[in-house]
């Protein structure tokens, strides 16, 4: 345990990177995922096929391969995807090409799952709801904003939460690809302090458990707040 307590600032900074990776990728993947979901439930066939194809492809691809692609391949095809143009420093945190590549990989990967979570929410709304709304004369915008979407959002909260928790855990892959976040730091400690491996593991595991619990707490609060009856 001493290794962790003595270097507590390093541990905190590592978890800071984890949180940043999580937040940035969560926002981007929520946007992309919503767009994909709109394509998949929308009326335009070409977009629906594209959405389905993207989701099928990405869901069956290991995250590590996407990370490998952004580290080794993408920059060879598109120069911008080397992310050398990203160079932001906020306090003790440096956001450079490694961080950006990690965010890109995580966002593209998670977007497919977000799309599925939202689509599940939309599909969970019974047909009769929209039909009844149309029958009483609501226009399309009214059907959407008054009847379908409120129910759909409510129904997507639990699957969205489990997707975001998975994203939080997946940020750990970035630790192998050049971002010193929690797992990268843990690997360093494990190498340096061979006699304290159990303590190091438990300390970092507790960190993750706390983060996961925070996300699931927020989700259950939202769920309770939006619950009907």
């Amino acid at each position: 345990m001493n290794a962790v307590l003595d270097n507590f600032d390093l541990v905190l900074r590592a978890f800071g990177y984890t949180v940043f990776l999580f937040l940035v990728s969560a926002v981007i993947s929520l946007v992309l995922g919503t767009l994909l979901a709109a394509m998949r439930v929308g009326p335009v066939t070409v977009l629906r096929i594209f959405g389905t194809g993207y989701v099928t492809l990405v869901r069956n691809t290991p995250l590590v391969m996407i990370f490998l692609f952004f580290q080794l391949g993408a920059g060879k095809i598109f120069d911008t995807l080397r992310f050398t143009w990203v160079d932001i420093h906020i306090g003790p945190f440096d956001f450079t090409s490694f961080f950006s590549a990690a965010v890109a990989s995580l966002s593209l990967y998670t977007a497919a799952f977000i799309c599925e979570a939202i689509r599940a929410g939309v599909n969970a709304v019974p047909m009769g709801q929209a039909e009844a709304a149309r029958a009483i004369g609501l226009p399309f915008s009214g059907v959407m904003s008054q009847v379908v979407l409120p129910q759909a959002i409510r129904a997507s909260v639990p699957p969205l939460a489990s997707t975001l928790i998975a994203l939080l855990k997946n940020t750990s892959v970035a630790g192998v690809f050049g971002v010193i976040e929690a797992v990268g730091r843990m690997k360093g400690f494990t190498n340096d302090y061979a006699d304290q491996r159990w303590g190091i593991f438990i300390a970092f595991a507790i960190g993750y458990v706390i983060l996961v619990e925070i996300v699931s707490l927020i989700s259950s609060l939202l769920e309770r707040r939006w619950k009907v009856a």
Partner: peptide
Amino acid sequence: AVPVIMLMIFCFYA
């Protein structure tokens, strides 16, 4: 709640 990659690193070293 614990990332798989962390479990792997732990199993590998410890």
